[in-house]
């Protein structure tokens, strides 16, 4: 079974992004980047399907040169090879531009299954996978909790809202966006890191990158509330918080 896993490299979760001069994107030179966590679950699902059905896992990413690092990381975790659609403008591109770039790079490979994470931790469009399915002309399902491949079909468990689920079946090839937390992530071993150095990263240059939307202003989110920050050493702050919760907010007796 030939499986593609599309992944994105995003600013590290525990860093505060600094905004560039034109206030339209972050200052890339100040940021540290990591593999988008939701995509890590799609990658692991790809590995588990490969264990059950054989075949290969090919990781694909569209982004600037730095993205090679995220692909290397995925290769070190166990992916067989990688495809890097490289262009600087893909860093802040919208989901359509990214899906177009990925579609052009992978459609000739005729993958049986294409997996992506639920959404990215940077722009969080939650669109790329679904748009990619439309571009590739294949059926899709989103927010998937379980994947069962049965011959030339796949049966998946979709998460709905409010604790509801649903099984959906569709023919292969198909695209699935994977819900975070459906599997236990594996990390790269030293052996994996060494092996990754010999694995292929195929570079692809995209046709014109055309986003359909753009950020015109980036700013701090508006405060919806006046937050009272209670200062001081832990013991004092804790005492003061209890006092205010009891006397002001009346949230405790």
């Amino acid at each position: 079974m030939k499986i593609a896993v599309c992944l994105k490299q995003v600013p590290a979760r525990d860093t505060q992004p600094r905004v560039n001069e034109s206030k339209t994107w972050l200052r890339e030179q100040d940021a540290t980047f990591e593999l988008n966590e939701p995509d890590a679950y799609a990658l692991e699902e790809g590995f588990q399907l490969r264990e059950r059905h054989g075949g290969e896992v090919v990781v694909c990413s569209a982004g600037p040169a730095r993205v090679a690092q995220a692909l290397r990381e995925a290769l070190a975790r166990g992916a067989d090879r990688a495809i890097h659609v490289e262009d600087d403008s893909l860093a802040s591109a919208d989901a359509f531009a990214v899906a177009d770039a990925l579609a052009a790079a992978i459609e000739g490979e005729r993958f049986d299954l294409v997996l992506t994470g639920l959404q990215s931790d940077d722009q969080g469009f939650a669109q790329t996978g679904v748009v990619l399915a439309e571009r590739l002309g294949i059926p899709h399902a989103t927010i998937i909790m379980e994947v069962a491949v049965q011959g030339d079909r796949v049966r998946v468990k979709r998460e709905l809202e409010g604790g509801w689920f649903q099984w959906v079946e569709m023919p292969l090839p198909a695209l699935l966006t994977i819900q975070s937390g459906i599997n236990q992530l594996r990390y790269a071993t030293l052996k994996g890191i060494i092996a990754a150095k010999k694995k292929e990263i195929r570079k692809v240059t995209p046709a014109a990158v055309a986003s359909r939307q753009r950020i015109v202003r980036l700013r701090a989110p508006e405060k919806t509330k006046q937050t009272q920050i209670i200062p001081g050493p832990a013991a004092d702050a804790a005492k003061e918080l209890v006092r205010r919760l009891r006397d002001e907010a009346r949230a405790i007796e």
Binding site: K223, K225, I229, A234, A235, A238, R244, A249, I252
Partner: peptide, 27 residues
């Protein structure tokens, strides 16, 4: 902190035991 009415910027491993202590006294 944008959503909070009250905030403490600090290490939860230090603040939480103090909160437990303070709640014990206030009860």
């Amino acid at each position: 902190f944008e959503l909070a009415d009250y905030g403490i910027v600090g290490d939860l491993f230090e603040v939480v035991p103090e909160l437990v202590k303070a709640l014990g006294k206030s009860a």
